[in-house]
Design a binder for these strands. Structure first.
Length: 301
DNA sequence: AAGACGAAAGTGGTTGA
DNA sequence: TCAACAACTTTCGTCTT
């Protein structure tokens, strides 16, 4: 099936000129931000062409080409996509994903929520591509969204915000390092909106989020700044002490990790500035200083 | 000149009434 | 739902190396 793409005016959301008309899906989609501009556009033209009467008779099927009242608007067939928006053939991996999405769509199609789900899946798909989120995490997000839909949590909220929140929750659960700011920015939605959606999902779906261990960040920073193993070893020792003294609870694990590593570097006379550590984990030097002060005091260093 | 330190004011999230 | 609260950030002046 050939996709016909027609350039439109600028996207009302992000101002991007890359707004594309996707006739097969019956949608206008912004290639920059993934905004679906007119999702209920109806393609009334026949999906086939005939040049002779015989041809027309041969190609015509029963009923009108598309029917808006049908639950799926013929979507199970239109989801058979073999080329991307630029006319390039899809990779086998993406084709496989599309195939799964299609099969899944056919299965759920008889239910009233299918359209909602399809839109959400599109949203999650676009966001995942934009943020380079691995397929396994994306799958988790999809499952979260489905469960949210089952529990009627989407009612009264926008599909986009819940879908984005589901993706964020999936990232948190799988410890995929994407923060709220990045995801909110990619979805072009308010951080608050995503955050409240996230909390709703965690609460109502009873998702058990892993507690972020400073150790996780410790090794990460050490690797990035090429901290030698013995210094890292010392840092881990200090961290374990801190855990015993219960200094780490309720604090930003990144701050604790950063401070512990900084102390270890100083004790080993390894020159690393607070600033360098701070920027690798996206916190401020002040936080490192505060944590450091507390650690030094309570651990008698 | 760069890095460290800390005070003060502001922000966003959590908690408990 | 709202106010209080702790943690964290931003900003900025000062001190040290």
């Amino acid at each position: 099936m050939v996709q016909r793409l027609v350039e439109l005016a600028r996207c009302p959301e992000c101002g991007s000129p890359h707004v594309v008309r996707d006739e097969d899906m019956g949608e206008f989609v912004c290639n920059e931000c993934g905004l679906v501009i007119r999702e209920d556009m109806l393609n009334r033209s026949p999906e086939w062409r005939a040049f002779t009467l015989e041809e027309e008779r041969a190609k015509r099927r029963t009923g009108p080409p598309t029917d808006y009242a049908r639950y799926d608007k013929g979507l199970p067939t239109t989801m058979w996509i073999t080329h991307d928006a630029f006319g390039q053939p899809l990779s086998s991996k993406t084709r496989h994903q599309m195939w799964r999405l299609r099969r899944w769509q056919i299965r759920s199609g008889i239910y009233g929520k299918s359209r909602n789900l399809l839109k959400a899946m599109n949203m999650i798909q676009r966001l995942s591509e934009k943020l380079h989120i691995p397929p396994s995490v994306k799958k988790t997000a999809a499952i979260f969204y489905r469960r949210a839909l089952d529990k009627d949590l989407v009612r009264g909220r926008s599909i986009a915000s819940v879908a984005t929140a589901a993706l964020y929750a999936a990232c948190r659960l799988t410890e995929t390092p994407r923060n709220l700011a990045e995801i909110a920015e990619a979805s072009l939605r308010d951080k608050k909106e995503i955050a409240s959606g996230y909390r709703l999902l965690v609460r109502r779906l009873r998702i058990k989020m892993p507690i972020h261990d400073p150790l996780h960040y410790l090794t990460k920073i050490a690797e990035k700044l090429r901290i030698p193993g013995d210094v890292l070893g010392l840092a881990i020792k200090i961290l374990n002490e801190a855990k015993k003294e219960r200094i780490t609870i309720g604090k930003d694990p990144r701050g604790v990790a950063a401070a512990v590593l900084y102390i270890a570097c100083q004790l080993n006379e390894k020159e690393v500035t607070q600033q360098r550590i701070a920027e690798t984990v996206n916190i401020t030097e002040v936080t490192i200083r505060n944590r450091k002060k507390e650690l030094m005091r309570k651990l008698n260093i």
